[in-house]
């Protein structure tokens, strides 16, 4: 939903008041995107809704299998540290994130630490969300604040292994920073589309979460960015999405990559399954320009051979 310009808003409001039918229609439309009428006209909410779709917040934080309300959590997800149940991120004050300040939200998104000091496992991809700009995080919060609050107690209890997972990843990051080779060398950005694609792919899109191999310590191997993974260390297999002609997407055109992000179809007429099918439910909600921007960015870096360092 595109917000009305601020100058027209009050005039539109008065018209809406005069027409209960139009108001009912607008209410239905807003309900369809899960926003409350009070905030849905806010441009920040509209921008936040787009970012939420790009990141797929609703995919993990909705128990769709059991008919759960959007963003109300409850989806059970298998991780290498056992099954976690996603928390409620609707603005319900008691069981959601309604009581969070913007500072609380930013800390959770950037550092994976809740207001009560709870540490989140990296199944919540905060290392990627940490790259979202301040204004994008504020927009995202504005959107989540606009979602209908749902009371759903008993979710999101931190796993007792969360701290172990965090400690392991921290050791991995420290090791990579001090002893491993230089991190991924990205080519100088060629144009605005590549930059935009880099931003989306590395923040909300969290492509590297699956497509960049991890070390045993659970840290992304930055020197192997997007090279794919045989799942040696975390069991998560993912293909090479660097422009390697043999094992990657070197033979794919930018249009073909954008097309996959739109409908899941590959150049050979196959349609992706597994986790990527879920990601396509995010990327299909992006604009054509943003899908092409991600494609342009993926085509930009030098090719890498498939998988973990051998």
């Amino acid at each position: 939903m595109v917000a009305a310009p601020a100058t027209n808003r009050s005039a539109k409001r008065s018209r809406l008041k005069a027409s209960p039918l139009v108001a009912a229609g607008l209410g239905l439309a807003l309900a369809a995107i899960g926003a409350r009428p009070a905030n849905a006209a806010d441009p920040a909410v509209a921008r936040g809704a787009y970012l939420s779709a790009a990141a797929g917040c609703d995919q993990c934080h909705t128990d769709a299998k059991n008919g759960g309300a959007p963003y109300a959590g409850g989806r059970a997800m298998a991780t290498e540290f056992g099954t976690i149940v996603t928390p409620n991120i609707t603005p319900d004050k008691a069981t959601g994130i309604g009581g969070w300040s913007l500072g609380d939200f930013v800390r959770a998104m950037r550092w994976g630490i809740g207001p009560d000091g709870t540490h989140y496992v990296t199944a919540f991809p905060y290392p990627y969300f940490s790259r979202l700009t301040d204004s994008d995080l504020a927009d995202l919060k504005a959107f989540l604040d606009s979602v209908a609050p749902v009371t759903r107690p008993g979710l999101g209890a931190a796993s007792s292994l969360a701290l172990l997972a965090r400690a392991r990843a921290a050791v991995g990051e420290a090791f990579a920073a001090n002893f491993a080779g230089p991190s991924a060398t990205l080519p100088a950005p060629r144009d605005a589309a590549v930059l935009r694609g880099a931003y989306l792919a590395n923040s909300a899109g969290h492509c590297g979460d699956c497509h960049t191999p991890q070390s045993w310590f659970g840290a992304s191997d930055s020197g192997r960015e997007f090279a794919g993974s045989a799942g040696w260390f975390n069991g998560r297999k993912a293909p090479n999405i660097t422009p390697d002609p043999k094992t990657g997407i070197g033979g794919w055109s930018e249009e073909e990559i954008a097309s996959l992000l739109k409908d899941g179809g590959t150049p050979d007429g196959d349609f992706v399954g597994g986790a990527m099918a879920e990601i396509v439910r995010n990327t299909e909600r992006l604009t054509d320009d943003d899908r092409h921007a991600i494609a342009a960015y993926l085509k930009a870096p030098p090719p890498k051979a498939f998988g973990e360092n051998k």
Binding site: P239, F271, G273, A277, F306, G307
Partner: peptide, 22 residues
């Protein structure tokens, strides 16, 4: 075509086909 790809092919591949690593 979009419906076939996503809800015909993709919806079956999602639960029933293992990812090919490369």
């Amino acid at each position: 075509f979009g419906d076939m790809g996503k809800n015909g092919c993709g919806a079956c591949h999602e639960p029933f086909r293992e990812k090919k690593p490369s």
